[in-house]
Design a protein around this nucleic acid. Structure first.
Lengths: 170, 170
DNA sequence: AGCATATGTCAGTGTTGTTGACATTCCAAG
DNA sequence: CTTGGAATGTCAACAACACTGACATATGCT
């Protein structure tokens, strides 16, 4: 099990020998951290009739108002049927508004209502509190490294989607 | 929406003013990266009759052989009913062995069979490949920061569980 | 003996993902 | 202009995996 040993000392600077043990610790860190990452919004949502999928939809509609269903589909990486169930409840409950496209009437453009914005705020506030504490505790250099590793861990398409969102938010 | 502005320039070194935009980018990075993180094992598992829950169980049994059901329960953070469903299929299929405790006969100690080890290898190999590439691409300093932020993001209990596993693996 | 603990099981429910079938709309080739 | 294919979105049924609640069994401890 403990094979892939680092061959010698102080060689880690640019050769980067990574033992299986180091990698496994990273894997477990991701697992445990993601649990914390979703814990606060999940708690809020469980009191309502919503789940994590609703959170994701609301988040990205807020991020890119007027986005189409198809666009959202690509970002979220689920089937349109799965997304549709979530969107339907959000629309029925008056959190999301769906407007038929002007140029292409097949498309639906999605917007948050006032009530939808309120939920989005509540959820992202909770998530930001934790993120802010983690960032503060780890320090600015650590944050830069954190972001670099996460970005390298994404699939190519997700990295593109992430980049577009990142640029649009400036 | 774009309130929490950084008050002045070059103040980020130790005061750490974190704009909502910076935090949101971190949130989205976590979301997209976690998708990549689970993508490879998920692909392997979907060909078999297993899912992500089986992966987690196999991972931690491999990590701490002889662990009890209760122990696993705390690490995974699910209900015993949920874990039991997964464990039952793994035992039936001969991937996991459950041995009655010697000191306390109420406890069941869990071990991977040879076949179980094979699956664990296959899954963690796939996951390590991605992790290794991300680490290489980001560099050693980034990796240290990555780990620091993740650790700060965990719930306290999870941080403890993570620490115990980390120490045991040395 | 009596209570607490560790595990396993059955039944029911909710969220979220899947596939399959279908309606509507757009666009381009004939 | 009509027709057929592609794009988009919706409805229905099903599977995976989480949850709660209730209960059974075996064991440990006082």
């Amino acid at each position: 099990m403990a094979d892939g040993r680092a061959p010698s000392a102080q060689s880690g600077e640019n050769l980067l020998f990574l033992t299986d043990e180091q990698l496994r610790q990273g894997i477990e860190a991701m697992f445990f951290a993601y649990r914390g990452f979703t814990a606060d919004p999940d708690r809020i949502l469980s009191d309502m009739a919503y789940g994590r999928a609703h959170h994701r939809a609301v988040h990205f509609i807020n991020r890119a108002p007027g986005t189409t269903v198809n666009n959202l589909l690509n970002i979220l990486g689920v089937t349109k049927q799965s997304l549709n169930r979530v969107l339907r409840t959000l629309i029925e409950d008056g959190l999301v508004e769906s407007k038929v496209g002007k140029a292409d009437k097949r498309e639906r453009h999605l917007f948050l209502t006032e009530e939808g914005h309120a939920l989005e705020q509540k959820l992202s506030d909770a998530q930001r509190v934790r993120m802010r504490m983690a960032y503060r505790e780890a320090g600015p250099d650590a944050v830069a490294g954190f972001r670099r590793v996460l970005e390298a861990m994404m699939d190519r398409e997700m990295r593109n989607a992430y980049g577009r969102l990142k640029d649009s938010g400036t």
